[in-house]
């Protein structure tokens, strides 16, 4: 147990070991075949692997199908407002750097209604994992065009097909000053998804992970070819990013060595949408992290009163 900057009070059984069922919340109520299930499993596996205490882990979400995510975890969860997960997560982490913070957003959440927060959270570079579960559509509200809907793709709001080219979240995030971790993975490749989330968790800073995801009801066809034809996917690998898990080597044969330190190359890769590319595009831990703006050490109540008294002297008559 701890409050604010790392109190030392911790439960006596703190060295207890956690298993998968320690992280399992309510039964997930997403549609069968929804990519969210796969992300949920990967996240729970990650927590087991890292042995994160459930009570010291917070999943913050917005509104949308994927934002039900925290309900299915047995950690702390904050299922807040549409598009506003990032400010909440920032507040949590600024106040409690000791907590492990994960953010789960949909594409509408992250790059539409909450786009301003996405830009600034990237720049703040507060230590957290920010997953954008991108199914290219508004699912909860029944098939409206999202910013990442492919051009020409038909929806209830644009029955003639999306008029505009899809927004490229990777390219955009890489364009934001002080971005420190940008990765892309796909929900249908669990081993890669897990490895990417792990790399994101271990990164010190704001780790933005776009998870390509199928909506079995509205956008099943978007990634159909890529799911069936692994050769359509380039795997970006590097010791400083993610390596291709052994189990996938036979399937994903197009491996591209990409040093995540190389921002120019990352931007080039992100901009070229002719092929799907999964892996860590960019990573730099040397960027300033906003939570460190907090000046330590902390002071006791008595100390604060003393300092405040000194401060008030300048207003004394």
């Amino acid at each position: 147990m701890s409050l604010s900057c790392s109190s030392l009070l911790t439960p006596v059984d703190e060295d207890r070991e956690f298993r998968l069922d320690d992280y399992e919340g309510a039964r997930a109520r997403w549609c069968p075949g929804c990519g969210d299930h796969s992300v949920l499993t990967a996240a729970q596996r990650l927590l087991v692997d890292e042995q994160l205490k459930p009570e010291e882990t917070v999943f913050v979400s917005g509104i949308g199908c994927s934002s039900r995510f925290p309900h299915y975890m047995k950690t702390y969860g904050f299922h807040g407002l549409h598009g506003r997960a990032l400010p909440v997560a920032t507040g949590v982490k600024l106040n409690r750097p000791d907590l492990h913070v994960f953010v789960v957003m949909g594409d509408g959440d992250c790059v539409s209604i909450g786009a301003g927060h996405w830009v600034h959270a990237t720049r703040y570079n507060v230590d957290m994992v920010a997953m954008m579960l991108d199914n290219n559509i508004y699912g909860l509200t029944k098939m409206q065009t999202s910013p990442t809907t492919p051009q020409g793709y038909k929806s209830n709001t644009q029955p003639q097909g999306s008029w505009l080219p899809a927004l490229n979240p990777l390219e955009a995030t890489l364009g934001i000053t002080n971005a420190s971790f940008v990765a892309q993975t796909a929900e249908w490749i669990p081993a890669h998804l897990f490895a990417t989330l792990q790399a994101a968790y271990r990164h010190r800073g704001f780790a933005f992970v776009r998870v390509l995801q199928r909506c079995p009801v509205f956008t099943e066809d978007i990634y159909l070819d890529a799911v069936r034809n692994p050769e359509m996917i380039d795997m970006l690998t590097h010791p400083d990013g993610v390596e291709l898990p052994e189990s996938l080597r036979q399937i994903y044969t197009s491996e591209v060595r990409h040093d995540p330190k190389n921002l120019a190359a990352a931007r080039e890769i992100a901009a070229d949408t002719s092929r799907l590319r999964l892996g860590v595009l960019y990573r730099d831990e040397s960027n300033p992290r906003y939570e460190e703006t907090r000046h330590l050490p902390l002071h006791t109540a008595e100390d604060k009163i003393r300092i405040l008294n000194e401060e008030l002297d300048q207003y004394a008559v």
Partner: peptide
């Protein structure tokens, strides 16, 4: 915290309050 907008400002405050 000087937030990016008024909404984020109250969001950050609420997230902080929530956590302590």
């Amino acid at each position: 915290h000087q937030a990016e907008d008024e909404i984020a400002a109250v969001g950050v405050a609420l997230g902080a309050s929530y956590s302590g």
